[in-house]
Amino acid sequence: MGLELSIFIDYGPRILVGFWLTIKIVVLAIAIGLPLGVFLALARRSRLALLRFAATAFIEVFRNTPFIIQVFLIYYVLPFYGLRLPAEQVGVLALAAFGSAYFAEVIRGGIEAMPAGQLESAHAIGMSETQAMRYVVLPQAVGVILPPLTNQMLSLIKESAILSTITVQEMTMTALRIQGETFRPFEAFIMIALLYWLLNEVVAIGMRRLERGLTRKTPRSTTLKVEGGR
C-alpha cells in the first residue's frame, strides 16, 4: 500500500485541533505541577516529620507507578468521592500530580547539589529559612535545575498521549479516531509522531536558550540527572 497523501490534507486540521488541546493540557499541568513540585521539595526538607513523610510518600508513589494507572485511578476515584469532572480536567490534574513528583525531585536535587555553606552563611547573617531559600539557594539552584526540569516538561508532553485512554480528545485520541475511520494507521500515527517530535524539539531549543540567558552571568558546571517518564 502506498502513502495516501490526501489523508494529511483531509485530516490535518482535525489533528491540529487535537495538537492544540495537547499543548493546552501540558501547559496547564505544568502551571499547576511546578508550584506543587516546589512545595513538595520544600516540604521534604520541613521540620515537621509528618509533612516530610507525606511529601516523600506522594513523590515515591507517583514516581514508582505507571502513569496510565494513575490516570485511571484518578478518573474513577474522583466520582467515587462525589467529584464529577470532565475527562479533560481529570487529565490535567493527573498530569500535574505526576509531573509535580518529578519536578520535586529535580528541585530537591538542585538544592542538595549546593554546598552546605551557602545555606549556612544565609542563616548566619540572620535570614529566615524562607529568605535563605528565596535569596540565596533557589537563585543559584535555577542554573542546575533548568536542564533536568526541561526534560521533565518534555516528558509531560509525551505522557499526555496516555490521556487518550480516558477519552480526552487530545492529539493521540484524534489519531486513533482517524485511523478507525480511514483504516490508514500509518498516515494517522506518523502525522502525530512528527508533531510530537517537532514540539519536543522546539521546547528543548527554547529552554536551552532561556537557560543560557539566565545563567550567562554565573557559569556553573554542575549537572543533575533525574529520569522522567516516557
Partner: peptide
Amino acid sequence: TFRARMGMVFQQFNTWPH
C-alpha cells in the same frame, strides 16, 4: 535578630556566587 548582630566569617568564605 541575634544572628544579624553577630557577623560570621567562614573558612570556605561562602560568598554568594549569583
